[in-house]
Computed example of a mutant assay.
Amino acid sequence: MDTNAVSDVAAQLLGAYETGKPVPPIIEGNPAATVGDAYRIQQEQVRTWLANGEVVKGHKVGLSSAAMQEQMGVDQPDYGHLLSGMFHLEAQPIPSAKFLQPRIEPEIAFVLGRPLSGPGATVADAARAVEFVLPALEIVDSRIQDWRISIVDTIADNASSGGVVLGSKPTPLSAVDLRLTGCTLHQNGALVATGAGGAVLGSPLNSLVWLANTLGPLGISLEPGHVILPGSMTRAFPVSPGDTVVATMAELGSVAAIFDTPG
Rank of each mutant, 00 (worst) to 15 (best):
R148H: 10
G73D: 03
A256C: 15
S96A: 15
N213W: 00
A5E: 13
L116T: 08
I108P: 02
L191M: 11
A196T: 14
P230S: 02
I220R: 11
G118T: 08
A247D: 06
D153K: 06
P238Q: 08
V164C: 03
A109I: 04
H88L: 14
H81W: 14
S174K: 12
D8W: 14
I258G: 11
R128W: 13
G113Q: 06
S174N: 11
T234H: 00
P93S: 04
H88V: 14
P217D: 01
V111W: 02
E105W: 01
V246T: 12
E131A: 15
D146K: 14
V9F: 00
G85Y: 11
M68H: 12
P95T: 07
T214E: 10
G53Y: 00
Q187T: 14
Q43I: 14
P22K: 02
A91M: 11
D157F: 01
F110P: 06
K57M: 15
N206L: 05
I155S: 05
P77K: 03
S161T: 11
A159D: 08
L83I: 10
F99M: 09
S64P: 03
D177V: 13
L100S: 10
D2F: 12
R235F: 11
V227C: 07
E44H: 11
T248C: 11
S117I: 13
G189T: 13
S161H: 06
H226P: 09
G182D: 11
I144Y: 00
T181E: 03
G225C: 03
G113T: 09
S160Q: 10
A5Y: 10
R47G: 13
V133M: 00
P170I: 07
L50Y: 03
I228Q: 00
L222H: 05
P106Y: 00
A33G: 10
F99E: 06
L166T: 04
N52M: 13
A212Q: 03
V9K: 00
L13F: 02
A16C: 07
V192M: 04
G242W: 05
M68Y: 10
S64A: 09
G216D: 02
F87S: 15
A247W: 01
D125Q: 07
T19S: 09
H88A: 13
P241H: 05
S64V: 04
S161K: 07
V245Y: 02
H88F: 14
A33D: 09
G198Q: 15
T248S: 13
V227S: 07
I149L: 10
N213Y: 00
V130M: 03
A236I: 11
V130P: 03
I104V: 12
K57H: 11
G242S: 08
V246W: 02
T154M: 10
G202E: 02
M68A: 15
G15S: 09
V46P: 06
R148F: 07
V255R: 00
A136R: 01
Q101H: 12
D157H: 04
E54F: 09
L166M: 03
G113N: 07
G118Q: 04
A5K: 13
D157K: 04
